[in-house]
Design a protein around this nucleic acid. Structure first.
Lengths: 349, 349
DNA sequence: GCGTCCGTAGCAAGCGCTTTCTATACGGTA
DNA sequence: TACCGTATAGAAAGCGCTTGCTACGGACGC
């Protein structure tokens, strides 16, 4: 039924060993023989059996990419960048092709572990974990243990946009969420805002906490009281931004600026403000985070912190493939860039 | 170094066969024995060797999802939905977990073939192809051949948002792009527009062609001349919408409406119109396609055709897993829904 | 009380490939 | 001419798992 190495060998009048060597190209094979084999491969339309190959060689060409939400461009952009560095080397024909596996955890710690196990089972060549981590101690320990096992088994582990995992020596490319959050709020303060609301992400995530801490640092630095009523937590989605904004407005109609956990949330906030008849930025300034592609198309365009998602993903991909050296200490922190646009201005009232 | 089935067997004082059966749960094993095995698995922290298992069983738990652009929510949403139906059955502990593999083709026919080969090599359990296809005859034939081979090898093939592939009996869930395009333009015509420009996608894609045909059908039906100068092709991105709009305006400043190939392109068009000092919809109406999440946040909110991406993806996923029967004839066409919003209105001049 | 069957467990033969080790055929050198 | 090193190909032993078949013991029926 299916063509095997042996069939190809028979047709090319060589031994299976030779065919294998031609296909893997890591052992001298006479040009004439190679050609004969290649022709047989073509004629029979032979496709290597991946599992068999992985089993025998004790390696696989799978690379896992874990994301929280594949429908969110934040992750899509990173995953795409990782993948672009992982695909077959452009050295033409020869193997080297790797299968990038994007796994959607939905932000669930359990699924994260499940996927890591699945990747371990497949003996993945590398795995890249993206996005903030959940801070629950038990889960951190579970992830740490999994990553250690993966590393032991020879799987390269890289974190992208995610803080280092204690107890492992996984390379981490992390975003300076705290610094970004701080600069963003400082920008608002510099514009003259004092009543600044904050719509945070899910409570237990590192990303949420770091951004919020940056915000609070900025407030503290400028001697502005941090009114707890001006902060609301919620998921990283539009709906959350919408609802939170209504709630914040109910609590304090005099706020003059809203900082959102990310651009998507900010969009929801904008919608709520519009529905409440408030103008942006005349009545209320709004700022986001991430600078996803649509941020510039909001009206007015969204002030936000640009994260180099594609660059970070690409770098993570290269490191995962061993094509770039890990940063010294295994940790690199990349800065976000404040993008000041139309959605923020001096308070108008 | 690594724990194998045999180690577990030794520890549980049973044969490897028994351990395998406990793990796969498809053969009666006495409760007491099972428990002993499970304990050993736990104690040794055993993880099945996927390749070995796939080789022996001649099946794998990989499911491939091909997308054109993983950073585009259009694909992200579909992929996420497919994946959600593919993940481990919620029947608790037992196996059944599958690894969904999202492969980013970047719209390149070569990479599409490469990924299909890679999936064939991995003996994937199923593959779902999303998004429009390239119409080049050679490529269509290549894909057709690949899909046939995959099907022969027992891989279930499902197309999602993609036209059927001739010569295969792959199940296809397709979007009625033509009908959607037609209704959209009819809406504009009903509002009184006569000079309607169209920013199409890449020339060689089925999606592009179908949407454009729908547009032209509507024009023809209402006796409106189809001015070729009012149509421009370009990639499915924001930039294309922006540039095309400037070009269209240069060609004919009197146009009163612009239909874009999709929402992203429409956003670019809006930006260009704003930059040109034209008001939406007062001066020019704009319409998109897809109804991606951000469409509603455009200002004014974008009139568009909503495609049930998540529903279609979920259905494709279920069919791929054999949990839902394929539609009669293997082909299901799902309709888009016209969403009339603020970006379209009667021509104002 | 013995034969039969059912419920379980083990044996062993692969699955298709990689890779070490060995064999062979050269060409070159002494 | 005899010998040896080099280049290339083959033989064969697994890699870790699944599964058809066989074996065994006890419960049941007659």
């Amino acid at each position: 039924m299916t063509v095997t190495l042996a069939d190809v060998a028979a047709r090319a009048q060589v031994s299976p060993a030779t065919v294998s060597r031609v296909l893997n190209g890591n052992y001298p094979v006479a040009a004439k023989t190679r050609e004969r084999v290649l022709r047989a491969v073509d004629e029979l339309d032979y496709v290597l059996n991946g599992p068999a190959s992985s089993l025998a060689a004790a390696t696989s060409d799978l690379v896992g990419i874990l994301v929280n939400d594949i429908a969110d461009p934040f992750f899509g952009i990173m995953a795409g960048a990782v993948q672009s560095e992982i695909g077959g080397q452009p050295d033409g024909r020869a193997g080297g092709e790797r299968l990038a596996v994007v796994c959607n955890t939905g932000g669930s710690p359990e699924r994260e572990i499940t996927y890591l196990t699945l990747l371990q089972r497949q003996r993945a060549a590398a795995v890249v974990l993206t996005g903030g981590a959940v801070e629950d101690a038990a889960h951190v320990e579970a992830v740490s243990a999994k990553l250690r096992r993966l590393a032991d088994a020879g799987t390269r582990v890289v974190l992208c946009g995610r803080p280092p995992v204690p107890g492992t020596d996984a390379v981490a490319i992390t975003f300076d969420n705290r610094g970004g959050g701080q600069r963003l709020t400082e920008h608002l303060i510099a514009l003259g805002h004092r009543r600044i609301a904050y719509i945070a992400g899910p409570e237990e995530r590192t990303t949420t906490r770091h951004r919020l801490e940056g915000h609070r640092d900025a407030l503290a630095e400028h001697g502005i009281e941090d009114d707890p009523r001006l902060a609301v937590h919620g998921p990283y989605d539009r709906r959350s931004g919408y609802d939170a904004t209504l709630e914040l407005l109910r609590r304090d109609r005099s706020l003059t600026a809203i900082v959102a956990a990310n651009d998507t949330v900010a969009l929801g906030a904008c919608a709520a403000l519009r529905d409440e008849g408030l103008r942006i930025p005349d009545d209320v300034s709004v700022a986001g985070f991430d600078d996803l592609p649509f941020a510039i198309d909001a009206v007015p365009a969204l002030t936000t912190v640009r994260l180099p998602l594609a660059a970070a993903g690409a770098r993570a991909g290269r490191i995962a493939m061993g094509r770039e050296n890990p940063p010294p200490g295994g940790i690199a922190t990349v800065q976000g860039e404040l993008m000041v646009r139309g959605s923020t201005a001096a308070p108008g009232r």
